[in-house]
Protein backbone atom coordinates (compact mmCIF):
# COMPACT_ATOMS: atom_id res chain seq x y z
CA UNK A 1 0.00 0.00 0.00
CA UNK A 2 2.63 2.45 1.05
CA UNK A 3 4.90 1.46 -1.75
CA UNK A 4 2.13 1.94 -4.29
CA UNK A 5 1.25 5.45 -3.24
CA UNK A 6 4.92 6.29 -3.23
CA UNK A 7 5.20 5.06 -6.78
CA UNK A 8 2.20 7.10 -7.85
CA UNK A 9 3.57 10.17 -6.15
CA UNK A 10 6.89 9.56 -7.85
CA UNK A 11 5.22 9.26 -11.25
CA UNK A 12 3.32 12.47 -10.65
CA UNK A 13 6.48 14.35 -9.81
CA UNK A 14 8.14 12.97 -12.92
CA UNK A 15 5.28 14.08 -15.17
CA UNK A 16 5.28 17.47 -13.54
CA UNK A 17 8.98 17.81 -14.24
CA UNK A 18 8.52 16.67 -17.81
CA UNK A 19 5.71 19.15 -18.30
CA UNK A 20 7.85 21.92 -16.89
CA UNK A 21 7.43 25.23 -18.61
CA UNK A 22 10.37 26.86 -20.26
CA UNK A 23 10.61 30.55 -19.62
CA UNK A 24 14.18 31.64 -20.33
CA UNK A 25 14.62 33.00 -23.82
CA UNK A 26 18.19 32.58 -25.07
CA UNK A 27 19.26 35.63 -27.12
CA UNK A 28 22.68 34.09 -27.86
CA UNK A 29 21.34 31.02 -29.60
CA UNK A 30 18.18 32.42 -31.15
CA UNK A 31 18.14 33.84 -34.67
CA UNK A 32 15.78 35.92 -36.76
CA UNK A 33 16.80 36.05 -40.41
CA UNK A 34 15.04 37.04 -43.61
CA UNK A 35 15.43 36.69 -47.36
CA UNK A 36 14.39 39.48 -49.68
CA UNK A 37 14.42 39.41 -53.47
CA UNK A 38 16.24 42.24 -55.19
CA UNK A 39 16.11 42.23 -58.99
CA UNK A 40 15.02 38.60 -58.69
CA UNK A 41 18.05 37.68 -56.60
CA UNK A 42 17.72 36.40 -53.02
CA UNK A 43 19.59 38.51 -50.47
CA UNK A 44 20.04 37.37 -46.87
CA UNK A 45 19.57 39.59 -43.86
CA UNK A 46 19.03 39.30 -40.13
CA UNK A 47 18.18 41.15 -36.93
CA UNK A 48 20.95 41.11 -34.35
CA UNK A 49 18.90 42.23 -31.35
CA UNK A 50 15.53 41.00 -30.20
CA UNK A 51 13.94 39.91 -27.00
CA UNK A 52 11.18 37.46 -26.20
CA UNK A 53 8.98 36.73 -23.24
CA UNK A 54 7.96 33.14 -23.59
CA UNK A 55 6.27 30.57 -21.43
CA UNK A 56 5.94 27.28 -23.17
CA UNK A 57 5.80 23.58 -22.44
CA UNK A 58 7.57 21.86 -25.32
CA UNK A 59 5.33 18.86 -24.84
CA UNK A 60 2.23 21.03 -25.15
CA UNK A 61 3.12 24.09 -27.23
CA UNK A 62 -0.57 24.92 -27.72
CA UNK A 63 -0.69 26.33 -24.19
CA UNK A 64 2.30 28.56 -24.78
CA UNK A 65 2.48 32.32 -24.91
CA UNK A 66 4.98 34.59 -26.57
CA UNK A 67 5.73 38.23 -26.97
CA UNK A 68 8.60 39.05 -29.29
CA UNK A 69 10.25 42.48 -29.60
CA UNK A 70 12.65 43.10 -32.44
CA UNK A 71 15.06 46.02 -32.36
CA UNK A 72 14.70 47.16 -35.96
CA UNK A 73 17.81 49.34 -35.96
CA UNK A 74 19.85 46.19 -35.34
CA UNK A 75 19.14 45.07 -38.90
CA UNK A 76 21.82 43.61 -41.11
CA UNK A 77 20.33 44.02 -44.58
CA UNK A 78 23.38 42.74 -46.45
CA UNK A 79 25.57 45.84 -46.71
CA UNK A 80 26.19 48.96 -44.64
CA UNK A 81 24.61 51.07 -47.40
CA UNK A 82 21.48 48.96 -47.21
CA UNK A 83 21.45 49.03 -43.37
CA UNK A 84 21.45 52.82 -43.34
CA UNK A 85 18.79 52.96 -46.03
CA UNK A 86 16.34 50.57 -44.37
CA UNK A 87 16.59 52.35 -41.01
CA UNK A 88 15.37 55.49 -42.77
CA UNK A 89 11.92 57.02 -43.23
CA UNK A 90 10.91 55.08 -46.34
CA UNK A 91 11.61 51.74 -44.72
CA UNK A 92 11.39 51.04 -40.98
CA UNK A 93 11.77 54.63 -39.81
CA UNK A 94 13.48 53.33 -36.68
CA UNK A 95 13.72 56.69 -34.91
CA UNK A 96 9.91 56.82 -34.76
CA UNK A 97 9.20 53.07 -34.71
CA UNK A 98 12.19 51.42 -33.05
CA UNK A 99 10.55 48.04 -32.48
CA UNK A 100 8.51 45.43 -34.23
CA UNK A 101 6.40 43.32 -31.89
CA UNK A 102 4.56 40.04 -32.14
CA UNK A 103 2.09 39.07 -29.44
CA UNK A 104 0.58 35.63 -29.66
CA UNK A 105 -3.06 35.11 -28.84
CA UNK A 106 -3.29 31.40 -29.49
CA UNK A 107 -1.20 28.45 -30.61
CA UNK A 108 -2.89 25.98 -32.92
CA UNK A 109 -1.94 22.33 -33.39
CA UNK A 110 -1.50 21.73 -37.09
CA UNK A 111 -0.55 18.08 -36.73
CA UNK A 112 2.50 16.07 -37.57
CA UNK A 113 4.50 17.86 -34.89
CA UNK A 114 3.73 21.24 -36.38
CA UNK A 115 2.06 24.20 -34.74
CA UNK A 116 0.98 27.68 -35.63
CA UNK A 117 1.32 30.76 -33.45
CA UNK A 118 -1.52 33.15 -34.20
CA UNK A 119 -1.26 36.72 -33.09
CA UNK A 120 -0.71 40.35 -33.88
CA UNK A 121 2.37 41.66 -35.60
CA UNK A 122 3.03 45.38 -35.36
CA UNK A 123 5.59 47.06 -37.57
CA UNK A 124 5.82 50.79 -38.28
CA UNK A 125 2.48 51.53 -36.66
CA UNK A 126 0.57 48.91 -38.62
CA UNK A 127 -0.88 45.89 -36.80
CA UNK A 128 -1.97 42.77 -38.63
CA UNK A 129 -3.04 39.27 -37.70
CA UNK A 130 -0.51 36.72 -38.77
CA UNK A 131 0.08 33.00 -38.39
CA UNK A 132 3.61 31.78 -37.78
CA UNK A 133 4.01 28.05 -38.37
CA UNK A 134 6.69 26.35 -36.33
CA UNK A 135 8.06 23.00 -35.17
CA UNK A 136 9.49 22.08 -31.78
CA UNK A 137 12.73 20.28 -31.12
CA UNK A 138 13.81 19.56 -27.57
CA UNK A 139 17.44 19.20 -26.64
CA UNK A 140 19.46 19.15 -23.46
CA UNK A 141 18.53 22.17 -21.41
CA UNK A 142 15.72 23.53 -23.52
CA UNK A 143 13.84 23.50 -26.79
CA UNK A 144 14.02 25.04 -30.25
CA UNK A 145 11.03 26.67 -31.89
CA UNK A 146 11.82 26.91 -35.60
CA UNK A 147 9.64 28.29 -38.31
CA UNK A 148 9.24 30.66 -41.19
CA UNK A 149 6.56 32.80 -42.73
CA UNK A 150 6.20 35.10 -45.70
CA UNK A 151 5.32 38.73 -45.06
CA UNK A 152 4.22 41.29 -47.62
CA UNK A 153 6.38 44.28 -46.81
CA UNK A 154 3.99 46.78 -48.44
CA UNK A 155 1.19 45.81 -46.02
CA UNK A 156 3.38 47.38 -43.35
CA UNK A 157 4.54 50.29 -45.54
CA UNK A 158 8.08 48.95 -45.48
CA UNK A 159 9.68 50.56 -48.53
CA UNK A 160 7.69 53.62 -49.51
CA UNK A 161 8.08 56.10 -52.33
CA UNK A 162 10.29 54.83 -55.14
CA UNK A 163 10.93 51.66 -53.12
CA UNK A 164 7.27 50.64 -53.38
CA UNK A 165 8.19 49.36 -56.85
CA UNK A 166 8.09 45.58 -56.45
CA UNK A 167 10.00 44.88 -59.67
CA UNK A 168 13.23 45.89 -57.95
CA UNK A 169 12.51 44.70 -54.39
CA UNK A 170 9.80 42.04 -54.22
CA UNK A 171 6.82 42.50 -51.93
CA UNK A 172 7.27 39.08 -50.34
CA UNK A 173 9.92 38.74 -47.68
CA UNK A 174 10.59 35.37 -46.12
CA UNK A 175 11.20 35.61 -42.39
CA UNK A 176 12.78 32.69 -40.55
CA UNK A 177 13.09 32.27 -36.83
CA UNK A 178 14.96 29.84 -34.60
CA UNK A 179 14.13 30.57 -31.01
CA UNK A 180 15.82 28.71 -28.18
CA UNK A 181 14.15 28.66 -24.77
CA UNK A 182 15.44 27.12 -21.58
CA UNK A 183 13.95 26.69 -18.13
CA UNK A 184 15.63 26.80 -14.78
CA UNK A 185 14.68 23.29 -13.66
CA UNK A 186 13.89 20.95 -16.48
CA UNK A 187 15.78 17.75 -15.79
CA UNK A 188 13.44 15.72 -17.95
CA UNK A 189 12.83 18.10 -20.79
CA UNK A 190 15.72 16.57 -22.67
CA UNK A 191 14.00 13.19 -22.74
CA UNK A 192 11.78 12.62 -25.78
Amino acid sequence: MKLRSLLIAGALVATAAMAAELTQFSPEKSQITFVSKQMGVSVDGRFKKFDARITVDPAKPETGKVQLDIDLASIDAGSSDADNEVRGKNWFNTTVFPKATFVSSQVRVVGGGRYEALGKLTIKGTTRDIAAPFAVKTEAGGAWFDGSLTLNRLQFKIGEGAWADTSTVADEVQVKFKIFVTGEVVPNAAKK
Binding site: G40, V43, G78
Partner: peptide, 20 residues
Protein backbone atom coordinates in the same frame (compact mmCIF):
# COMPACT_ATOMS: atom_id res chain seq x y z
CA UNK B 1 31.87 38.13 -51.53
CA UNK B 2 29.41 40.94 -50.94
CA UNK B 3 26.52 38.51 -50.71
CA UNK B 4 24.77 39.66 -53.89
CA UNK B 5 24.69 36.72 -56.25
CA UNK B 6 24.91 37.33 -60.01
CA UNK B 7 21.92 36.00 -61.95
CA UNK B 8 22.61 36.57 -65.63
CA UNK B 9 19.67 38.44 -67.17
CA UNK B 10 17.67 37.40 -64.13
CA UNK B 11 17.51 33.79 -65.32
CA UNK B 12 20.88 32.08 -65.08
CA UNK B 13 22.30 32.05 -61.53
CA UNK B 14 26.10 31.96 -61.48
CA UNK B 15 27.54 29.97 -58.62
CA UNK B 16 29.03 31.97 -55.75
CA UNK B 17 32.66 30.85 -55.93
CA UNK B 18 33.49 32.55 -52.64
CA UNK B 19 31.34 32.91 -49.54
CA UNK B 20 30.13 36.19 -48.10
Amino acid sequence: AKGFQTVWFGVLPLPDLVGK
